[in-house]
């Protein structure tokens, strides 16, 4: 595999008030790989990936994406970088004032000159890809949590990003849909060489999608390894964490 580092965390610390969330976190994510972050609820997984897209800034250390230091990046460079990224929010974060389809269309309407017909075609294709084909005109309030999540995924993918950050993309979805989302993430990585960072609680996602996986615990990433090694590890901490997730 190409060992070109695309995302690098070096000694990253992040606290909210007195609460220390990240403590000397180091991580390299390589171009084209799918990296999974596991960890107990509230350990800072979302906080970790927010640094990659500039939604949070570290207190100490550095986060570098495509060679840009995220704490000193210019507005223009950040805009260009974000145009190449997609972010799947944990709670979908759809705009409630727009229909599902218009949510997905929004990045195209705002940042491209495509015609209305082209936009609608692209949106429908992406909605079909995430297995919610008939929701274009539904408002977010009419959708179930799992459907919103998939519309959020379609929105993140609409600009065909090179880096996709997934915050629990399969949480709350039924097993069949989860499996199809897993396959989709794997496909994006394999056919389009998308670099993915995936926060997940599902061992199934780790097995199908991940090239590498690590456990976020006490503010650092531990036991970073290939999925097979990770899942079958005899480390007591990992065994305890994975305990009920393996069946």
């Amino acid at each position: 595999m190409n060992r070109d580092v695309i995302i690098r965390y070096q000694g990253v610390c992040k606290s909210f008030g007195a609460k220390v969330v990240l403590k000397d976190l180091d991580l390299d994510v390589y171009r084209g790989e799918a990296f999974c972050i596991m960890g107990p609820s509230g350990c800072g997984k979302s906080v970790t990936i927010r640094h990659i897209i500039g939604l949070l800034k570290q207190d100490r250390g550095s986060v570098t994406v495509e060679g840009h230091d995220m704490s000193t990046i210019s507005r223009g460079d950040l805009r260009k970088l974000r145009a190449r990224m997609g972010y799947v929010f944990q709670e979908a974060a759809l705009l409630n004032s727009l229909s599902a389809g218009e949510n997905v269309a929004l990045p195209l309407r705002e940042t491209t000159e495509l015609s209305d017909a082209e936009i609608v075609d692209k949106v429908n294709a992406k909605l079909a890809l995430v297995k919610v084909p008939d929701v274009y005109h539904k408002m977010p309030s009419e959708l179930s949590g799992g459907m919103k999540k998939r519309v959020g995924l379609a929105r993140a993918l609409i600009t065909d990003p090179e880096i996709v950050l997934y915050d629990e993309p399969t949480a709350g979805l039924d097993p069949e849909i989860s499996a199809s989302i897993n396959r989709l993430m794997r496909e994006l990585a394999e056919t389009l060489h998308v670099t993915s960072v995936i926060v997940t609680h599902h061992v199934g996602t780790v097995k199908t999608v991940a090239d590498r996986v690590g456990l976020l615990d006490n503010g650092r990433l531990n036991f970073v390894s290939k999925p097979e090694e990770f899942i079958h590890s005899t480390e007591p901490r990992l065994v305890r964490f994975l305990g009920d997730k393996l069946d």
Binding site: L55, M85, A93, L94, L106, R155
Partner: peptide, 25 residues
């Protein structure tokens, strides 16, 4: 209330990562 709800439900963050200017939009 409307914009506040957007702030707490991460809709403002969603606009930000899509590089959509919240003041203009």
């Amino acid at each position: 209330a409307e914009i506040g709800t957007m702030a707490v439900s991460e809709e403002l963050h969603a606009l930000e990562v899509m590089s959509i200017d919240r003041i203009s939009y």
